[in-house]
């Protein structure tokens, strides 16, 4: 499913003294089956932007096209359910939204709310739980007896059970330990690869943006500052640092080493392997 934002503007509390411009002139095209990372520091408009991807917010100017539905400013929209079940959002700390008595009921809530039968919802719950790497035994437990990491997975399973075409992930691994972080990110990537789910990742982790995304969008002061492949984006690390953003560890290290050695590597290194091979070349050259 394609999502296109055209000249989107969003003002909070429009026509009140508290009116606040959060987004302006945003043009974004999310292709079906793509993996997009959205980066930008706090207050750059990322959270407002992501709520447009499933029409939780309607633009105050411009339009958002989600699949074959077009959401425009100034028009009353009806029946947005279809969109909401096609575009799943995993919000920050999604475990705060768990509420049911059992894990099974919690995961089934979404699908049943969108019209799935109880049996269908239960099947989906089992499947989703497996996807997030948890055992079925947990279905009858209260979600509140689980550890933080397990609660996170159950909450994510609740979104996956809706079987969305598009997944929007807002800092999905914040607060998890390093292994949990890696497992969750790998799981999303696998879903993306195997089932062709378009994935939109809002993140502060430049490592994740570099590792997984086909395209990176930098948000700055409410609008798109720059778009490109990870290589495009991180080839100008100075620009990112000026915006107060990080660069991947490998790039940061490369910059420090280049500066001390007074040389420039031939390319920007986005992985440890790249970095090792560049450093080997440089050290080898010294030998001759």
């Amino acid at each position: 499913m394609r999502i296109t934002l055209q000249d989107v503007e969003y003002r909070y509390q429009i026509n009140t003294p508290f009116e606040h411009l959060a987004l302006h002139d945003v043009n974004i095209d999310i292709e079906p089956g793509s993996y997009t990372a959205i980066i930008g520091h706090t207050g750059s408009g990322k959270s407002t932007l992501l709520q447009h991807f499933n029409a939780l917010l309607k633009p105050t100017k411009g339009s958002v096209t989600i699949g074959d539905r077009r959401i425009e400013s100034g028009r009353k929209e009806k029946e947005l359910r279809g969109i909401r079940s096609n575009v799943g959002i995993v919000f920050q700390f999604p475990e705060h939204q768990l509420f049911e008595e059992t894990v099974e009921k919690d995961i089934c809530f979404g699908p049943m709310n969108f019209g799935a039968s109880e049996k269908d919802a239960k099947d989906r719950a089992r499947k989703a739980l497996k996807q997030v790497g948890m055992a079925e035994e947990i279905l009858e437990k209260s979600p509140f007896d689980l550890s933080g990491g397990q609660m996170r997975r159950v909450a994510i399973a609740g979104v996956l059970a809706m079987e969305p075409d598009v997944l929007v992930l807002d800092e999905p691994t914040a607060g998890l330990d390093p292994r949990g972080r890696m497992e969750i990110m790998d799981m999303f990537y696998q879903l993306h690869k195997e089932r062709g789910i378009s994935t939109i990742l809002v993140t502060h982790s430049m490592e994740d943006a570099a590792r997984y995304a086909d395209e990176i969008i930098i948000m700055h002061r409410g609008t798109v500052f720059k778009k490109g492949t990870p290589l495009d984006i991180f080839s100008q690390p100075e620009q990112l640092l000026e915006l107060g953003l990080d660069v991947p560890d490998t790039v940061r290290f490369q910059l420090k080493l280049q500066k001390e050695l007074g040389i420039r590597f031939e390319r920007i290194c986005l992985s440890v392997d790249d970095l090792v091979s560049e450093v080997k070349t440089v050290m080898g050259r010294g030998n001759q």
Binding site: F253, L257, E260, L261, V282, M283, G286
Partner: peptide
């Protein structure tokens, strides 16, 4: 970085 520079 320091040790790499020394080495270099």
């Amino acid at each position: 970085v320091r040790e790499l520079c020394e080495l270099h």
